[in-house]
Design a protein around this nucleic acid. Structure first.
Lengths: 255, 255
DNA sequence: TTTATCAGTTTGTCGGACAAAGTAGATTTG
DNA sequence: CAAATCTACTTTGTCCGACAAACTGATAAA
């Protein structure tokens, strides 16, 4: 048990960190709104009274954190952190922690069911139209595993969007990024994998249209169980997610 | 429809980004293992053939992304991105997107129930001991809202840990960081809030001990419904999480 | 054995520099 | 007058060299 401290811990953060913190505070507190210009590097140098190299290191931190971006002419402006970028970081973390497909599947099942439940309640005409559109595309590319897998991923993104819950959209994304890339593999290895996938989507959409929650949940569950069975024919659920990830992450980044 | 391109898109990323990417590739691919030293800045300068300022900007990017850290003597080493840090960033994003407590509650309910279900199945003796320990502490500080709220947050972290699903632990964290800070407020404003909280934890732990999933889920649901009712006495669920966040985020960072 | 000293690294910060790219105002041209 | 062009200025990305503070490791002193 330490003696009660005589002095408060003295703050010795490096200058670039303080610069980053100062700008972050302004943005998070709302005094600087997303889209507002931050000023040129030289202005920041003058305001903070530090060297440009120091300012630039601070800027890099915020840029990576998604609070700052550079507009078309490379000037700094505040921005809303994009889900997608953050989710990518999380996916990377999951990979490095060598999580298994079993863990991924368990969580995805939970979250996709939750998405469906919310979507059944709250999907607007527009949401439904987008899902229908996606379904039509899926039927067209049913013979092309890569394209179909992409449609599947999009379908679930749209489903989450139809939940009208942004926390849910965000929470499912990291797992989904790792989970759905395997779809292509499964569809191309398992006979009738493609048709079962599209059929599940069709019933799911129909359930949303009829606001039939039970049916929606049932088809979501069936859809993911299909994935699981398909996956288990190819590999063990207890395999770490490592391998699948790499090429997909590269592909995403390239967009 | 664009004509089929004659040339591949030429890569014009700034040098600091290339430095960051190069190091990231080595880590994500596993060629550099977490804990391995990266080398001094000067060595990186020599290897990449760029200026130290440029290297440092690249380092800042990776540090913020959680792939690099500096050890006790400030030397660079690879590391596993910590859940907690990433979750903090996500929480910040949720705040900036002005999500509501309703959205937060909906997702947390889903994920906490999932945690409980997994924990009932898989909790080890050690997990149970930690939860029991936490419960004992809660009973001691039942009259101190701040301490009790912290215990509550810890309890749910331990519960997630007992699920033995790292994806779940990660997925619940961002919402939890925003969700549980309100506990203190509720406990101190609602009569019997504290005792109901501890009672719920007690029953929940008991359910885990008896491997009684139904009871576990029931008490989890009841526990969160208590939170919800308590919150609604104070504020609307449709309020954005903005306000709560600030001071808590500061407190966490200071640790 | 502990403490003090000292030389060598390494990081954090600084000042200044320059090319490439973007911006804006002035100028020419139709 | 409108459009195109040129020019001067600003800003970013990168580089160079420098130095104080902190840390390392080893050696000398108490």
């Amino acid at each position: 048990m330490p003696a009660s401290p005589l002095f408060r811990r003295i703050d010795v953060a490096p200058a670039y960190q303080k610069v980053a913190d100062a700008i972050e505070r302004e943005i998070v507190s709302g005094r600087i709104k997303p889209g507002d210009p931050i000023g040129t590097e030289l202005e920041l140098v003058r305001q903070f009274g530090v060297n440009r190299s120091t300012v630039r290191e601070g800027i890099r931190v915020l840029e990576e954190g998604g609070l700052l971006r550079r507009d078309s002419s490379r000037r700094l402006q505040a921005c809303l952190p994009r889900y997608n970028k953050l989710a990518t970081r999380l996916s990377r973390a999951l990979v490095l922690h060598e999580v298994t497909f079993r863990e991924l599947f368990e969580v995805s099942l939970t979250l996709e069911i939750a998405s469906t439940e919310c979507a059944v309640e709250r999907a607007t005409e527009e949401d439904i139209a987008e899902l229908a559109d996606n379904l039509a595309r899926s039927e067209q590319v049913i013979a092309d595993p890569a394209a179909l897998a992409e449609c599947d991923a999009d379908f679930h993104v749209l489903l989450a969007k139809a939940s009208h819950n942004r926390v849910l959209q965000l929470a499912r994304e990291p797992a989904a990024q790792l989970f759905f890339p395997t779809t292509e593999m499964i569809v191309s290895h398992v006979a009738q994998g493609a048709s079962r996938l599209v059929e599940a989507h069709r019933h799911l959409l129909e359930a949303i249209r009829r606001r039939d929650k039970a049916a929606g949940v049932q088809w979501t569950r069936r859809h993911l169980q299909d994935w699981r069975r398909g996956f288990e024919r190819i590999a063990s659920l207890d395999r770490s997610v490592e391998h699948m990830y790499m090429e997909h992450a590269q592909a995403v980044r390239r967009k």
